[in-house]
Design a protein around this nucleic acid. Structure first.
Lengths: 193, 193
DNA sequence: CGCGGGTTTGATGATGCTCAAGCCCGGTGG
DNA sequence: CCACCGGGCTTGAGCATCATCAAACCCGCG
């Protein structure tokens, strides 16, 4: 159950087995079936979550009812509504499961305890944040400067695994285009092959 | 010279005056005139920078020669090409001064020293990263779901100061639209007032 | 077999881009 | 003091990309 978490942690800092045991007590295991919510808009986001198995997505829903996916989180990725989690204000994102998933959750309080008892985790989450910023910046730059087709090609190159595990209309939403447009883009790419 | 930096730091952690003195020795003051580069694409980014006075921008230039602004950094904001700074690979962003500016630079090496000698800075940069992620997420969500006009309104609400200090064509670039479109949007908003 | 989720296709239209020209204003030099 | 220049902003006409709406299709599953 904790393999993915600790693999993730050990990439960045090293832990004694005591520390590992302590850390384990602070996370709450949880399973989610496909389409079940982990968080709904307007609720307060109580947890920071790492995906041990499966896929989660975080997304907003606009006035027209269209979903806009901020994040698609495979194994080893962390998800939360950061603003709501930190401020305890209502969330603006929804989070649900794209596949049946296994998760580890940690509350704000437990996270503080983790920082206090194992200060190395300050470093861990600093480094995790850095990686996160990097990928957000890349995505934003892409969304400012690329055409729909280029954005799709970028994605196939960087995250080919997403394409197999996530329905195409969610890929479209993640890219900020409609399902129809993505369908036509793929058709075009085959043609020019 | 160091006021903005330490204000920024003290919002998140507290420092003894010894620590403050030590930290001061690790930053390099630098002035930049309007339009001067701090970093050019393909060079290696040696510094993490905080703006003490003035405005910097980081941006890419596409094949057609069009600029796409990732960040507009006023006083108290941090700028770098994160990927290049961390990996020492060539940068993909340019950074230059929008106004005459005063900066504090820190190298990767000095930053490591800072973490080592004052571990509280792990926490500081973790918290700074969090704030950064928040604003990147908000901007990305906006760029996925908003029209050009909504993006502009969002900006006027959240960062009204930018509008006075940054030429309009840079605002457009930051929003991911053309100068012409922004001009027409403003005209429209006046009409409907 | 029929249903539901997901994808595809076509016709039409809006949003925002491109290109080209003109305007406004502050600064510089004759 | 005026003329000119340049940077930035505006305006217009035409066009491309992508969205919308509606319908059909595909396929795995109860």
């Amino acid at each position: 159950m904790f393999e993915v978490l600790f693999q993730n942690v050990k990439d960045k800092i090293s832990l004694t087995s005591d520390e590992e045991e302590l850390a384990k007590t602070l996370f709450i295991p949880k399973k989610l079936k496909k389409k079940q919510y982990l968080l709904q808009q307007d609720d307060v986001c109580k947890y920071l979550t790492i995906v041990e198995k499966g896929v989660l997505r975080s997304y907003t829903v606009d006035d027209a009812g269209t979903e806009h996916i901020l994040q698609l989180a495979l194994e080893g990725h962390w998800v939360t509504d950061m603003y709501s989690f930190l401020s305890q204000e209502p969330a603006i994102y929804n989070i649900d499961a794209v596949e049946d998933s296994e998760l580890l959750l940690i509350t704000n309080r437990s996270l503080d305890e983790l920082y206090e008892k194992i200060p190395k985790f300050e470093r861990f989450f600093r480094l995790l944040g850095q990686k996160n910023i990097l990928s957000l910046q890349r995505r934003l730059t892409g969304s400012l400067s690329f055409t729909a087709e280029d954005k799709y090609l970028q994605l196939t190159k960087n995250f080919p695994d997403l394409l197999n595990r996530v329905p195409q209309h969610m890929i479209a939403s993640y890219l900020g285009i409609t399902r129809e447009t993505l369908s036509r883009i793929k058709k075009n790419l085959l043609k020019d092959h």
